[in-house]
Write a protein that binds this DNA or RNA. Structure first.
Length: 581
RNA sequence: GCGCCCGUAGCUCAGUUGGAUAGAGCACGAGCCUUCUAAGCUUGGGGCCGCAGGUUCGAAUCCUGCCGGGCGCGCCA
């Protein structure tokens, strides 16, 4: 792993060193908590290139006035060769201006590090397990699964880029009642394959035609031996076979999006291995599971409510609203009972856990967080665990909601959408909104070739760089880092924006928010296009100025690095950059 | 009834995890271009960051309580 010492990272270090110097000189008490100190570009560019709040953050614990502290810091920071201006502003900000050479050096740094620009070691090599998709193995993936799949996958790439080991995991819910339904549905298709007229698929079974091949396969393999056999003879077998086929289909769907998990964990195998039972015993020893009665749900009082004694996990002890059953009255495990053991298993081989769930499961976040806290926090700190909820996507066609009905067979699958608009459009679009906000996916808009469409806008930026380089090559010109001092103010602004990429990546990784990368790319593209447009009216501002080879070389060098940055960002999102449009 | 998410320009949304005078696109207004640097450009107006308190040097951001919208809520997955 190549660690990039980027300009922003360097300045965080410089501020820290300056504080060390003040401490050594006795001008600042030692051992103050510096966690809240930031070094970042101010919103208002007139305030300079970088600003730090260090003086304000430390003033109180140091028992000093912010300005006094700031003066000492300014004196230290002004010694740095890259700093051309350091001043105290507002309530105690320190604003720094950096030399042209400092920015040009960063531009060269992008060229040197290339595809690794933005990569960092902030993750410290810790292992993060990300569980995403985990769609029930009862049919092909539909658009409801798509967003979580993309967000999870982009997050995985982002965390890897930021110095984490990442495990991409899929939890296969192959043990519950819905896979029994699946098995029965397949049994019907099996009979169908043997020539029986099965008529209309009964209510309560999966009607999808995608089950027919499985039925046919079983018919070929087993003949008619299960046609009239009791369910107990075939249920387990049919369940297993059907799940295997469904998972093959789901993997294929995921492959269309470029998504490949490292681990597929089976709920059924987990149960067969006795993991939930182990967890229960462990929890009972600590009085975290007890036999008790659930209260009737409040608000709506169902007539069929009957209190039953069940083994309950004390999730209320960890912030949940109610204790939760881990077993049903028939003795089988609840989803939660198995999921609890599953999370414990994941925690064994990871330093942190992330789950990406659909918003419809929001109600169960507290209990699983409670479970992880209880099971991993028994001795020492509980493992860091986050559940990221992604909101639903509404499909639109020319502004009209696409009507879907599973029964009518008109639901749109993920494969349909990828086929229609392409993997890259799907992936990028899914990241153009923060995950916790609902989003519309309009088939017409996502493929529109206009600046209203962020996918196009960002790709166009990359294509423009490529076409410019092609055109220059035809003129015998190419990028060169030899005369970068010829770059002017407008070009330098572009460099300053580009140089923010590493901190955007770092912040996005820390917040587990890959969509920030997409927004940064859009900003970068906007700045690039704006610069490009200067050349419309002023030919001397174009990238290619034939009569000035040195200037052209410098500008092409800049363009090359912008293109590199777009590729780096898109790579994190799992989107391929295009050479032409 | 309870829980979670959301509420930012007319619309769709960002907002660097507490920073300075809150941003972008669309739409609207005004100019420009008639081109191959093509899938337009420049520029302007537009805000009680849902409301009210609180925390502190400082709040769109954190806390509390309301209002409004969405989702969920039993041993389903």
């Amino acid at each position: 792993m190549s660690e990039t010492n980027t300009l922003h990272a360097a300045f965080a270090g410089h501020v820290s060193s300056a504080l060390d110097a003040l401490e050594a000189a006795g001008a600042l008490p030692a051992g103050l908590n510096r966690a809240a100190i930031t070094v970042e570009p101010p919103r208002d560019p007139s305030h300079g290139d970088l600003a730090t709040n260090a003086a304000m953050v430390l003033a109180k614990p140091a028992g000093m006035k912010p300005r006094d502290l700031a003066e000492g810091l300014v004196a230290e920071l002004a010694k740095l060769p890259q700093v051309t201006g350091a001043e105290i502003a507002g309530p105690g900000f320190i604003n720094l201006r950096l030399s042209r050479e400092a920015w040009l050096a960063e531009l060269r740094g992008i060229a040197t590090t290339g595809a690794d620009y933005g990569r960092s070691a902030v993750g410290g090599g810790t292992t993060v397990n990300i569980e995403y998709v985990s769609a029930n193995p009862t049919g092909p993936m539909h658009m409801g699964h798509c967003r979580g799949a993309v967000v999870g996958d982009a997050l995985a790439a982002l965390l890897e880029f930021s110095g984490h080991k990442v495990v991409r995991e899929y939890y296969v819910n192959d043990a519950g009642g819905q896979v029994d339904v699946l098995a029965r549905s397949v049994h019907l298709r099996y009979r169908e394959a043997l020539g029986e007229d099965i008529g209309e698929i009964p209510e309560g079974l999966y009607p999808g035609a995608y089950l027919a091949p499985t039925g046919h396969r079983l018919a070929t393999h087993y003949g008619s031996k299960f046609v009239d056999a009791p369910e107990s003879d075939w249920l387990v077998l049919f369940r297993k076979e059907a799940v295997a086929d469904m998972m093959a289909m789901i993997r294929e769907d995921l492959g269309l999006l470029g998504i490949h998990h490292d681990i597929f964990s089976s709920e059924a195998e987990l149960q067969a291995a006795g993991k939930p039972a182990e967890a229960e015993a462990w929890l009972r020893e600590r009085d975290l599971v007890y036999d008790g009665m659930l209260e009737a749900p409040k608000g709506k009082t169902p007539e069929d409510w009957e209190p039953v004694e069940l083994p309950l996990f004390r999730s209320t002890k960890f912030g949940d609203d109610q204790d939760r059953p881990i077993k049903k009255s028939d003795g089988s495990w609840t989803y939660f009972g198995a999921d609890l053991a599953y999370h414990y298993q994941k925690a064994q081989s990871a330093d942190a856990l992330v789950d990406i769930w659909g918003a419809d499961h929001a109600g169960t976040v507290k209990r699983i967080k409670a479970a992880v806290a209880a099971m991993t926090g028994a001795e020492g700190e509980a493992i860091p665990f986050e559940v990221k909820l992604v909101q639903m996507v509404q499909l639109l066609r020319d502004g009209e909601p696409v009507k879907m009905s599973k029964r009518a067979g008109t639901f749109i699958t993920l494969a349909d959408v990828v086929r229609e608009v392409g993997k890259d459009v799907v992936r990028f679009t899914m990241l153009t909104r923060k995950p916790e906000a609902q989003m519309d996916f309009d088939f017409a808009k996502v493929v529109e070739a206009s600046k209203d469409n962020p996918v196009f806008y960002v790709q166009y930026c990359h294509a423009r760089v490529s076409s410019t380089l092609r055109k220059a090559a035809a003129e015998g010109l190419g990028p060169s880092g030899a005369d970068l001092e010829l770059l002017e103010e407008e070009e330098l602004e572009l460099v300053k924006l580009a140089a923010q990429f590493p901190r955007i990546v770092e912040a996005a990784a820390a917040a587990r928010e890959p969509h920030r990368i997409a927004f940064f790319l859009h900003d970068l593209a906007a700045a690039f296009h704006a610069y490009w447009n200067l050349g419309n009216d002023r030919p001397e501002k174009r990238f290619i100025v034939v009569q000035n080879g040195k200037l052209t070389g410098a500008r092409l060098f800049l363009a090359t690095q912008i293109g590199q940055l777009v590729r780096n960002g898109l790579a994190l999102l799992g989107v391929e950059a295009v050479e032409e449009m």
